[in-house]
Every structure is written in structure tokens, then in C-alpha cells.
Design a protein around this nucleic acid. Structure first.
Ligand SMILES: [Zn+2]
Ligand SMILES: [Zn+2]
Ligand SMILES: [Zn+2]
Ligand SMILES: [Zn+2]
Lengths: 131, 131
DNA sequence: GCAATTGATGTAATAACATTACATGACGAC
DNA sequence: GTCGTCATGTAATGTTATTACATCAATTGC
């Protein structure tokens, strides 16, 4: 997915997420952007949908929240299976990718003739500092 | 986690999930159990919390829904990392466990000194029939 | 130029999911 | 019988997400 020119709303949401320490809920983003003219949840959700499509934002299913992608590479190609550790103590989220996991999941789904569209891997626990 | 004697409400919720074709939301369960005296969401959520604690029910984070555990073994021990394929077409959910994945995730989290408490793996896509 | 199309936006209302707070009831330990 | 604990009942509220409909801007085809 080549990264297209972002629209005004998409840029605002992306900036909010990029400058945030941790994940943010859609409604938290909305509140941050009221000064910039945001009035309704849909403005946030629409921007988030696009940003996820472009691979610039990830949704954390177990938190109902969103984070900016921290992959080193740009987003000109699909970056495969994304996994996260999420600290219950400090809220820190770490994104990582692992070829071995991806291969193994591929083998397993293939065995049941399942066609994967999106894989969610989220590990809740405590980081080194909060252990 | 040894499976204790279930309470009345826990039994009702467990039965509803066991007899369901696929995952159910808490509110769907509530509706199914109105005839049995259920009146409020909390009755469902409280039962679900316990059933999850006992390992008899799993929450699907990406669906905000719940399924009965389909593990062949009983629930007298923790059954480690649980993963699911979820068909977008027919709603079919398949639970599986894989030692290799578990090992690999353990290695990766250990590398960042992360203490895992709960791991979520959910694969959305299409099953053989719905491909 | 000017319809027609497409994609983005604005706004309101509503739906769907989950929790807090507080009161009551059942039951065994002592 | 009093206490502590756990399950339950009920209402209210909080949080997350979508539907529906109107408007606006840029592009395309004529
Ligand atoms: Zn990423
Ligand atoms: Zn931490
Ligand atoms: Zn299970
Ligand atoms: Zn299917």
C-alpha cells in the first residue's frame, strides 16, 4: 500500500497519535482535536479507517484503542503479521514482527484451508519496569 | 484451574454458549436468557467473567463476543495460548493451540523482559466453505 | 461550460458494548 | 446469632461504534 497524500482530518489524527505516548481511544483523539474543529466521532473513525488501510495506524483489539505504527520501514508494502506487547502497568505498547510466527500461522491456517485476511496478536502483561 | 460447581447464572450462560452455533455477544446472551429471569447485562458479564476464569469460555477481542471452549481436555490445568480462526462469511470459530507458537512468543517476550499474562491470537478470514 | 461521478466532510441520532454503585440474599465459620 | 464472603438484583451511567442523510470539492466526460 503506497502512502497517499493525507487529507486534513487524516493528518490531524495521525499527528495526534504520533505525538501520543501510548495508545488512544477514538474518543480521546476526538477530545484532543476539538480545538481543530472536530465535533463528532465519525470524523475520527473515518480518518482511522483510512490510516489503518494505509498501514500507518494499528488498532489494538483488546484495548479498543489505536497506535501509530512504529515500523522502521515505510509503508510501501504490507508489513505482514503485526504483534504487540501491552503493559498493564504503564500502558506501553511495543510493536514487533516475527517471520517464524508468521510462517507457523500460515502453515496452520493452510492446513484447515483457511484464507487469512487479518491477524491479531496482542500480549498483555507487564514490561520490565512494571514487573 | 479446577472447575468448580457452577452457580445458576453461570450454568445458564454456559449452556447458552454451548448450544450456540457460533460466538455470542453479552447482549445476545442476555436476550436468550430473559425467559430464565435475566434482566440486566451485569448478570451476563459476571457469569462470563467467572467462566473465563475457569477456562470454560473465551472472549474474542476482535468481535466483542464469547465462545465456549472447545478444547478436548478438561479444564483442570491452564491450556496455554489459545488461538482462533474466525470466518467472516459464516461466523465459524475454530479454536486451536500450538506449542511452536507458544514457544516462539515466549522467546520473544523473554527477550524484552516482558511478563506475559494473557495472549490473544485471532485470525480473521474465510473458511474453506466461504472462500 | 456543465452534468455526472467520486471521495471527503459535517451533523445528528442511535446502536452496541461495558462498568459503577448500591442494595439484598444465601451460607458457612466462629 | 453475628460476621464475612460470595452470588445476585436493579438502576444508572459510561464508553465505543455505526447508520442516515446532507453538503462540498475535485475530476471526468461531453
Ligand atoms: Zn506497524
Ligand atoms: Zn510497564
Ligand atoms: Zn479453550
Ligand atoms: Zn465460513
Amino acid at each position: 500500500m503506497a502512502t497517499p497524500q493525507l487529507t486534513k482530518n487524516q493528518t490531524l489524527v495521525m499527528d495526534a497519535l504520533s505525538h501520543s505516548e501510548g495508545p488512544m481511544s477514538a474518543y480521546t483523539i476526538l477530545d484532543k482535536l476539538r480545538d481543530h474543529g472536530f465535533r463528532a466521532p465519525l470524523q475520527v473513525y473515518r480518518a482511522l479507517d483510512k490510516l489503518q488501510e494505509y498501514g500507518m495506524v494499528h488498532r489494538l483489539e483488546s484495548l479498543n484503542a489505536f497506535v501509530a505504527c512504529t515500523c522502521p520501514h515505510d509503508h510501501e508494502h504490507d508489513h505482514g503479521v503485526t504483534a504487540f506487547t501491552i503493559c498493564e502497568g504503564c500502558g506501553q505498547v511495543t510493536e514487533f514482527h516475527d517471520e517464524a510466527i508468521e510462517q507457523r500461522l500460515s502453515t496452520l491456517t493452510r492446513a484447515q484451508n483457511f484464507k487469512t485476511e487479518k491477524t491479531t496478536i496482542e500480549i498483555r502483561g507487564h514490561c520490565q519496569s512494571c514487573a
